[in-house]
Computed example of a mutant assay.
Amino acid sequence: MWFAVVSLSVMHILSISYGPRWLFYATKPLPTILLTAIVLLNPTSLENYTVAIALGLLLSSLGDIFLMLPKERFRAGLGCFVLVQVLYSYAFALTFEHYTHWLLLLAILLLGSIIYLLLLPNLKKEKWTIAIYLIVILFMIFNAIEAWQTSEFKAMVFAGVGAIIFVLSDLVLAIDRFRASSDFSRHVVMFTYYTAQLLIALSAILMI
């Protein structure tokens, strides 16, 4: 199934420029759906972690569908990804006992505030929805890095790197949507998005 995940991801990225449109729509949610199945077929000793990651991947595929509809359901899609980040945060927090890197949290919040202020002039009616999403994804990346640094599970390195790439993907998407668009931004967004989801899935599959 790994070959199918990679192949479908590449097909979707290529379809952004070359089409056909049916291939673009068909392939976008399939990699995360397959990753959901892979995670569920490889249970680990930390069952709640596996379930939370699988649910996050499944909700991601639903969010992908909302965001690619001809009449885009932006808030519905963003709502799905808010839940995704909550699930991922919960999963990562299961792997360590105490928070220790408080300076890291302050640095993440400061960076997030700067990004939000740069986007704010163009957010218009979406300023509160973006603010909520930003808060939950910042908490997600904090939990992921905390788990990476303090958890006894070595597989959390995949979660930490995956979370960082996920944030970079969303940052490129936000810049493209609310600041300045480019011809290749969607390609970058999807490449980093699929990479992040694959790494987060691996954190569940390889956890021992």
Rank of each mutant, 00 (worst) to 15 (best):
G63M: 08
L202M: 15
I114C: 05
L118M: 14
T27A: 15
F81T: 08
A155T: 13
I137Y: 01
L119M: 05
V167W: 02
T150W: 07
L67Y: 04
I141F: 01
A155Q: 10
G160N: 03
H12T: 08
V167M: 02
L123G: 09
S181M: 07
V136C: 02
A174V: 06
F153Y: 15
A180K: 09
L111I: 10
E126G: 11
I175F: 04
L110I: 06
L30M: 15
R177W: 09
L105S: 11
I33T: 02
N143C: 11
Q149N: 09
T27V: 08
L83V: 15
Y88Q: 12
M1Y: 12
T192F: 03
L40R: 01
K127F: 15
Y116I: 00
D183C: 09
L67A: 07
L55I: 15
A174L: 01
L59H: 01
Y49K: 03
M156D: 11
H98N: 07
P70Q: 10
Q197F: 14
Q85V: 10
T50G: 14
H12S: 09
L106A: 13
S203Y: 02
R75W: 14
F74C: 02
I208S: 13
I175K: 01
V5K: 08
L34Y: 05
G79H: 10
M190D: 04
V189L: 01
L106M: 09
V161R: 05
T195L: 15
D176V: 04
L109S: 15
I65C: 03
L83Y: 07
L198R: 05
A37H: 14
L118D: 09
N143Y: 11
L103C: 04
I145H: 00
L69T: 03
T150F: 05
G162R: 10
R177T: 11
G79I: 13
L120G: 02
A52G: 07
